[in-house]
Amino acid sequence: MPYPTPRPPAPNGPATCPRCLAQVIWCTTERQKAQMVDRDRDERGNQAVRQDHTGRWLVRQLSKDRPTPEGAEALHMPHAATCTAPPLPVHGTRRRMSAGRVRVGVRPHRWQR
């Protein structure tokens, strides 16, 4: 094939969490990012979820400007807050060297003398 295959669409709709296998809904945020929310409605949740006329699941976070669900929106909890799997490690953090590998000094190169 002379052209690369197109990128697959972002997941959207009911599915399972790939880490803890719980029932979730993949939604799209206002900034077109994928976000998982718990499938069951929860009045303690802060995510307003609705399904548009094309069948896409859309989510927005409640804010001071819009503090309550509007129209066909329902409150759900973000799955990141309730996932039972351990959190992923944060990339970009510096790891400390063990006590046996502590560097005291480095030999200078010829141009550094």
Rank of each mutant, 00 (worst) to 15 (best):
A15K: 07
P89Y: 15
Q35W: 13
P6V: 11
H79L: 00
P9C: 13
D38I: 03
L88Y: 05
C27W: 07
G45S: 04
A72E: 06
V59N: 05
N12Q: 12
G55A: 09
P6G: 05
Q112S: 11
E70I: 14
R56S: 13
C17S: 02
C83T: 04
Q23A: 11
Q32H: 04
A72I: 03
P78D: 06
R94E: 09
A15Q: 08
R7G: 02
E73L: 04
Q51R: 13
P8M: 11
P11N: 13
R41Q: 11
V24H: 10
S63H: 12
T28Y: 07
V24A: 08
A99E: 15
V90A: 06
C20P: 00
Q61D: 09
C17G: 02
A34Y: 04
W57H: 04
R50L: 10
A22N: 00
P108M: 12
M97Y: 13
A10N: 09
H91M: 11
P11A: 13
Q51D: 01
H76V: 04
E73K: 02
T29K: 09
V49H: 05
D38S: 08
R50N: 06
V90M: 06
G71Y: 00
P2E: 14
N46A: 09
H91W: 14
D52V: 07
Q47D: 01
C83G: 04
W57I: 05
E70Q: 14
P78T: 06
V24K: 07
E30P: 00
A80W: 04
G92M: 00
E73N: 02
R96Q: 10
V104F: 09
R7C: 06
P67K: 09
R113Y: 15
Q35H: 11
V37N: 02
P87Y: 14
R60W: 00
R94V: 14
R107K: 08
P89R: 09
Q32N: 06
W111K: 06
R96D: 06
P4V: 13
V90L: 08
P67G: 04
C20D: 02
T28I: 15
G13A: 01
P108Y: 14
E43G: 02
C17P: 01
P86D: 10
P6A: 10
D65K: 14
D65E: 15
S98H: 12
D40L: 03
E30N: 05
M77G: 01
A34C: 07
R41T: 12
A85R: 05
R94P: 06
N12Y: 13
Q61V: 05
K64Q: 13
K64V: 05
V106K: 06
T5W: 12
K64D: 14
G45T: 02
L58P: 00
P6F: 07
P78V: 07
Q61H: 07
P87A: 12
E43N: 02
V90Y: 07
W26F: 15
Q47I: 03
R110M: 11
P18T: 11
N46Q: 09
R19G: 01
A72R: 06
R44M: 10
D40I: 00
T84P: 02
P4E: 15
H53T: 15
P86N: 08
C20K: 01
G45M: 03
P11R: 14
N46T: 08
Q112A: 13
R60Y: 01
H53L: 15
T82N: 01
R44Q: 12
P108A: 10
A74L: 12
R101C: 11
A34R: 08
